[in-house]
């Protein structure tokens, strides 16, 4: 079996999420990596993709119509290449989720999004109901179209492989959509939902002043977003849009540092899917410590500044 993986690049690197998708794809068969972009970007990306161990062949699709990875031309391109591939795979990123379902429809396939585990070539585990249940689904489609949840597969290394690169003759056109602009927020503070690291505070901070003065230096050091428990928001320590939890935002960063948060189930519901959880709390009995990967029992007013300094 051979698997086609749509690979994304970012700042001259293969995106980590795409390297996770490659890892997942290697469990299904030989991996062909498809890189798209304008001629120069595709060339650069192809060189990078060829070095990722596990990639057997790189398909380089360079053309102006592909410059912004818009769904319409990229889906058409995938369909034109779909041929004998058993699986078509991408990471569950904004691009993957935009492109793959469209390609699947054109191939008359029901896509399987957010794959967390591969049981066999036809059977996959994916979250439903916001991750409150995990469904194992079996596809009867001849070809499978999957997006991969990056946090469940270790990214393939960036270096170590040496795949061949084939240029694809791009004939697809885009008559319906046009790229206008992109906007990357200038604030240093990332959005809560997309942040890689979140520093989050609770009642233990005691006041709005402490909330800022204790958490901000740590968040700055880590390039982290700042979150808050409902109690902290209700007590006026933090703005409402910082709230993480059942009634606030649901987040799943790589690192979640809970400072002075007891960890009521309502809060856990909003962050339990974080990859690594650190709890800093003076109460050794706090429920947060029951779910944390690393717990530090101590006075947050001493520990947090010390941590910021140590980083």
């Amino acid at each position: 079996m051979t698997v086609l993986v749509l690979v994304e690049t970012e700042a001259g690197q293969i995106r980590q999420a795409s390297r996770s998708a490659i890892t997942a794809a290697t469990k299904l068969g030989d991996v062909h990596a498809l890189v798209v972009g304008n001629a120069a970007d595709a060339e650069a990306a192809a060189t990078l993709a060829a070095k990722v161990p596990g990639v057997a062949k790189v398909l380089k699709a360079g053309a102006d119509v592909l410059a912004h990875e818009l769904a319409e031309p990229v889906a058409d391109l995938i369909v034109s290449l779909a041929g004998d591939y058993s699986h078509i795979v991408a990471a569950s990123t904004a691009v993957g989720k935009n492109v793959l379902p469209r390609a699947a429809a054109l191939l008359d396939v029901q896509p399987i999004p957010d794959v967390m585990a591969i049981v066999d070539a036809d059977t996959f585990v994916r979250p439903i109901y916001a991750g409150n249940a995990l469904a194992t689904v079996k596809s009867s489609d001849a070809k499978k179209v999957l997006t991969i949840r990056a946090t469940n597969f270790d990214p393939a290394p960036a270096e170590g492989g040496s795949a061949s690169v084939d240029a694809v003759n791009v004939t697809v056109q885009d008559t319906v959509s046009r790229f206008v602009s992109e906007h990357t927020p200038t604030s240093d503070r990332p959005e809560l939902e997309s942040a890689r690291v979140i520093v989050s505070g609770g009642r233990g901070l005691g006041s709005a002043e402490n909330f800022q003065s204790v958490l901000t230096p740590l968040a700055d050091k880590l390039g982290a977003a700042i979150g808050a428990s409902r109690v902290a928001v209700d007590s006026g320590y933090a703005e409402n849009d910082c709230q993480v939890g059942q009634t606030g935002k649901i987040v799943a960063p790589e690192l979640y540092i809970a400072v002075g948060i007891s960890g009521a189930i309502q809060h856990l519901a909003g962050m339990k899917d974080s990859k690594v959880i650190v709890a800093i709390n003076k109460d050794a009995e706090a429920p947060m410590l029951q779910v944390a990967d690393y717990a530090l029992v101590g006075d947050l007013f001493e520990v947090v500044p010390e941590l910021a300094k140590a980083l």
Binding site: N240, Q246, T247, A264, Q266, A269
Partner: peptide
């Protein structure tokens, strides 16, 4: 209590 309240599916519009 809090994990109990969780099972009542209680919510109020926050604002």
């Amino acid at each position: 209590k809090l994990s109990s309240v969780f099972l009542s599916n209680t919510n109020h519009e926050e604002d």
